[in-house]
Design a protein around this nucleic acid. Sequence first.
DNA 1: TAAAGACTAAACAGTT
DNA 2: CAACTGTTTAGTCTTT
Length: 554
Amino acid sequence: MMQESGTETKSNGSAIQNGASGGNHLLECSLREVRSNGETPSVEIGAADLAHLQQQQALQVARQLLLQQQQQQQQQQQQQQVSGLKSPKRNDKQPALQVPVSVAMMTPQVITPQQMQQILQQQVLTPQQLQVLLQQQQALMLQQVIVSLTAARVAPMDQQQVATQQLAFQQQLLQMQQLQQQHLLSLQRQGLLTIQPGQPTLPLQPLAQGMIPTELQQLWKEVTSSHTAEEAASNNHSSLDLSTTCVSSSAPSKTSLIINPHASTNGQLSVHTPKRESLSHEEHSHSHPLYGHGVCKWPGCEAVCEDFQSFLKHLNSEHALDDRSTAQCRVQMQVVQQLELQLAKDKERLQAMMTHLHVKSTEPKATPQPLNLVSSVTLSKTASEASPQSLPHTPTTPTAPITPVTQGPSVITTTSMHNVGPIRRRYSDKYNVPISSADIAQNQEFYKNAEVRPPFTYASLIRQAILESPEKQLTLNEIYNWFTRMFAYFRRNAATWKNAVRHNLSLHKCFVRVENVKGAVWTVDELEFQKRRPQKISGVPFAPTSHCISALSE
DNA sequence: TAAAGACTAAACAGTT
DNA sequence: CAACTGTTTAGTCTTT
């Protein structure tokens, strides 16, 4: 309604509300609201953390699997129960916050290609987990490269050592890439996956793909050759700092901060911009690509800076022009180059897809649902065969100015957490999109950052919010907070959607209000919810379906 | 074409 | 008194 009113000739109050005017104010209000409620999760930090935890979880499962295999080889039968290996689905279903500390704190290790091969063959992990695992491995290897680069400067290796290590890294990377390709191919064959390179939830993929050995070699040469004895002496300390930062337990999340454009919405990977230049420019606005949410966004830094002034101090002292910064810059440049390359490829692909599907760009109502464009095109054979009558001509909503996410984040969701429920029919069905069991939890990274309307009904979202809570009950305000936390879209037009939430809570019998000591909370009557409507669209049993295909995109 | 579901808007009452 | 919470009604749009 709001979206239609924005694009259709007919207009009412909501159209005005939905316009650009006042949007910032509403956004600020929503954010203030979130903060005032004592909740800290910033969107970006949450995104990075989640990616980190997902990686850790996948790695943990893989390790347990390997461990179990070893045990089984030794003792044949007895270890199955003791191993405590959770089913992949169960594991995936855990919200990030429930991940045991021991898992989150685990020091990442690179699994050998042989071990990886084993995991792939066993097919015990879900495709999603394998994907994550592969990416993490690539990230870890990249970190090893960086560590070695700095270590090489601290303690110069002889040429043979360097060459040997180089070769090892290259071989490992190559093997990993081959395995990943093999894995993706097998997924494709199984119809579980439509490959979408460059998707934001798989931030490492483009990098790893792009970091071909020759480039790494070049990088290696550049950095190692720039080493001088004087620098080694003066920068010994800082180099070590980098190393420890990179191999620390939180390294994966830091890596994702570097590489994933979503991990820092304001970090535009603009490292090649001369620092001083941007400084003078930014001093007025106090918005600096390397500074956000009180944290230094220099790759791998994350130092807390109270205000902008202290950030500037920190930037000048900690990230001055030395060989460490130079090396980091070079790495970042590689990252950017690869991302740009990937973006160009994806743009080209999108163009070809749209050409192929004879997009009617004059369709006025199509704009609000970029999600369904990609879904309908990439989801499955049935979707693409459906030949939608009209497709959006632009991947972004007119009211959504966020550009970094327009790259095409078609998220592959091969695991099922919560079956969210009915999608909003008015938009989704238009394109014959069978994404009824789309998975919020898997797509949340996207919705957190992109101001795109989630294709789910209010009732489904409310239910999801309540079910995600530990007590399976939420106050109205907590439901509000969930909406704003999980969806960038709901950070504006608060009056509208909050009214809708209240309206839905009251209207649907599946939402039960329970008087509490500290007020009232809302719970879900699951029976009523399931009763609500025969979900013809989904029509498919949810567990297997969502395990196979569900999707979303921008 | 009618019915049903979903959404937006708004009025209103009770509570904090 | 203002803001919040909860209920209800009305109108519109879309799908079946």
